[in-house]
Write a protein that binds this DNA or RNA. Structure first.
Lengths: 247, 247
DNA sequence: ATCGTTCCTTGACACAGATCAAAAAATGGA
DNA sequence: TCCATTTTTTGATCTGTGTCAAGGAACGAT
């Protein structure tokens, strides 16, 4: 579970996954400090990384793969509150208890930093603290954008928003040419999508089928999505352009 | 709009509203700096403070009153993404454009800090930066808690969650004795509540009537709420303990 | 290959909350 | 005080999504 996979980069431009918290403006001095406190952990698809309430003595950055952050009520209702894609950060400095359940939804590698030394580094290197604030503010914006999705969008629009988010992040990392057809793997099961969108898995499945029937997306297998025209997905997702369910 | 109401406090323990960003661990040196860059602004109930996209050359802390942070889609659907109560902070250092529309829902006074000097202060006084990170992380937690409310709770539970949040904050500030009946003013219209909860105002009104009919809350006028037993509100809000709508 | 398991799709129906409509109550100005 | 406006309540009806159920497809283990 805890394998050393020391990568060979010395500054952030060489860092393929741009550990945003620590590499954004990194210099050799910090990296030397970080070398001492970091280690890598890998998880396989479906495996829990940690449970809400667990003791947590590290913070981490996603190197590869996808994980989810979820919250669950006593009666089992579950809401995903964050999606962790490569370069995303997880863990709260200054808090030794996990607030959310983290689950790997694909094979996952995280770069972990021991919490106490990481906190010390934040306190002593202002630009890292600054970068962490930036990242947290970005996450807050994302959470608020998601509140609009959850509170006011229809099921069809919710699916469109999720596909758009995944496609955008995928394009950033994989350097797909912009303006062209987007093709990517869905890193989530229908159930995980439902938990993100505040829907049931049946509704997710039906809406994906409807988008496919309307020619707005196409699927190869269950997980490979292709979107010929992202703008059309976003603008027409709300319309029932040809009557919807019954051809 | 921009009146000087210089209050007479010199450090955070004397500060009745605990400007959290800047007073949490304040010392005289900072306050002297802050005196130069701060000013007060007052708004009356219903008045817009700023629109999403506006140029914004300050950050601010709420002194008294309540404001909302909202996001609106082109077709007019609106979602509140934050509630600003006294001591809450608004504005993003490093960004000169407002991301959300801010509206005063009661008479409101904010303590504003000019953005550029405030940013400089962050960069030069680590504990202020640290405090700002803490606050942002708290807001992120609040946003994520709200995602659970929006995505997975019923209308009745949503109302209960909102009342609980307002009551808790109110109790903190007004120092109500815990465990006793909570009485407070609703600082929001039914429509604003609906925008927070992802409901329509009719549903909000009906659910409040239902809670009243079930004896879980009581109203004096339309806005003064009293909750004899907060636990009961939170645990029974989901139940239709006696059949619900029809007596 | 075959079995068991998990994931996904589809159908029928129910229901929570939305929508449309009207009236009552509160609020603020003249 | 009275009128105009805004806010709130309530009723009737509609609809999008949930629930329950069944079957199919993909995947991993033996």
């Amino acid at each position: 579970m805890q394998q050393a996979v020391a990568p060979a980069f010395k500054n952030c431009t060489d860092c393929p996954i741009r550990h945003r918290a620590v590499c954004a403006k990194c210099d050799s001095e910090e990296l030397e400090l970080l070398e001492d406190i970091k280690y890598y952990r890998s998880f396989s698809a479906g495996q829990p990384v940690m449970w809400a309430g667990d003791h947590m003595d590290f913070v981490a950055s996603v190197v590869s793969g996808v994980a989810t952050l979820t919250q669950t009520m006593e009666d089992g209702r579950t809401q995903m509150v964050g999606l962790l894609l490569p370069s995303d950060f997880v863990g709260r400095p200054g808090r030794g208890v996990a607030a959310y359940t983290v689950t790997a939804t694909t094979d996952l590698t995280m770069c972990c930093f021991r919490r106490k030394p990481f906190e010390k580094m934040i306190d002593t290197t202002p630009h890292v603290a600054h970068r962490l604030l930036e990242m947290t503010l970005d996450e807050l914006d994302a959470a608020r954008e998601w509140m609009l999705v959850l509170g006011r969008k229809t099921a069809r629009e919710k699916i469109a928003s999720l596909l758009s988010i995944i496609a955008r992040r995928d394009a950033l990392l994989g350097s797909a040419p912009p303006g062209k057809e987007l093709v990517f793997d869905l890193p989530l099961t229908r159930e995980a999508m439902a938990d993100y969108l505040g829907l049931t898995l049946e509704t997710v499945s039906r809406q994906i089928s409807a988008l496919k029937r309307d020619g707005i997306i196409s699927l190869s297998g269950k997980r490979k999505i292709s979107i010929p025209d992202m703008d059309r997905l976003l603008t027409e997702a709300g319309d029932d352009s040809d009557g919807g369910y019954l051809t």
